[in-house]
Every structure is written in C-alpha cells, then in structure tokens.
C-alpha cells in the first residue's frame, strides 16, 4: 500500500496512533489516496480524536467529494456526530455549502432526524 492509501485507511478505521505516526513522518495531511480522497474525507466520522489530529495539522475541512459534492461536514451532520460537527466548524468548515443535490449539512441532519445537530447548526 502506498503511504497516502495507508494514511487514508488509518483515518477511516479510526486508528489515532497510526495517523499520528504518519503525520510525524511528514506525510502531507491533504494528500489524496488512490481513490482521490483526503484522510479527512474518509475518516471514521465518530472518531473526534482523529478529526482533531487531522484538523490541527492543517487538514482542509472544505474539500468536497468530486462525485457528489459532499463535504466532511455534510457527512458528520448526516451521521449525527455532533462533536465532529463542532470541531469541523471550529476549523472553519463552511456551513452553507451545498452538495450536487443542493443539500446543506443542516438539511442532511434534518432528513436523518439528528435534532441535536440541527439545533446546533441553527444556533450559529
């Protein structure tokens, strides 16, 4: 596995130690894997430790999926992970961004019944 793939996989499986090691080795936090996605785009959304580590090391929270227009904030909102939603916003994630179907993160939270996320996004 090439390093970018290993990095994305570590983020996707929520392996904080491995993500930290690769960052220390100097891997580019915004490099894409063989599927064209950055670690932040594929990370295990419920893993706030991984999210924080990536963001603190300069991961771009406003990168959108090239086939659906989905951003990490869309994903975190749809899955209902409020902590991750808050973190992404703290690191300047755009809350008004729309995916290719014109849905904002708040719309996805609403569709999936994550009211705590809806209330939080409304309060901003």
């Amino acid at each position: 596995m090439i390093r970018e793939d290993e990095f994305a996989s570590a983020a996707a499986t929520g392996n904080v130690e491995h993500v930290g090691m690769l960052l220390q080795d100097g891997v580019d936090v915004n490099a894409v894997n063989r599927f064209g996605r950055t670690p932040l785009q594929v990370m295990m959304m419920g893993n706030t430790a991984v999210a924080r580590l990536l963001l603190e090391n300069g991961a771009n929270p406003n990168v959108s999926d090239h086939s659906t227009g989905t951003t990490p904030l869309h994903d975190a909102a749809r899955e209902g992970f409020l902590d991750t939603v808050k973190l992404l916003i703290q690191f300047q994630a755009d809350i008004s961004v729309k995916d290719y179907r014109s849905r904002r993160p708040i719309d996805l939270a609403q569709e999936n019944g994550h009211l705590n996320v809806v209330y939080f996004l409304e309060s901003l």
Binding site: D5, F35, R37, D65, T70, D99, R103
Partner: peptide, 25 residues
C-alpha cells in the same frame, strides 16, 4: 464508489464506499 480500504481479510477486501444515489456511505 470506493473511497478507502478499511479491511483486508483472508477472503477479500473491505472498502468504505459512497452510494452515488443516496450520498450515504
């Protein structure tokens, strides 16, 4: 559409992927 590899067992590979229609993983 696969976005990352999340497991590789004896009998195959596991991917995190996105359903292009629903946008869900």
């Amino acid at each position: 559409e696969p976005v990352a590899e999340i497991g590789g067992g004896a009998y195959g590979t596991v991917y995190k992927a996105r359903d292009r229609q629903s946008g869900q993983f």
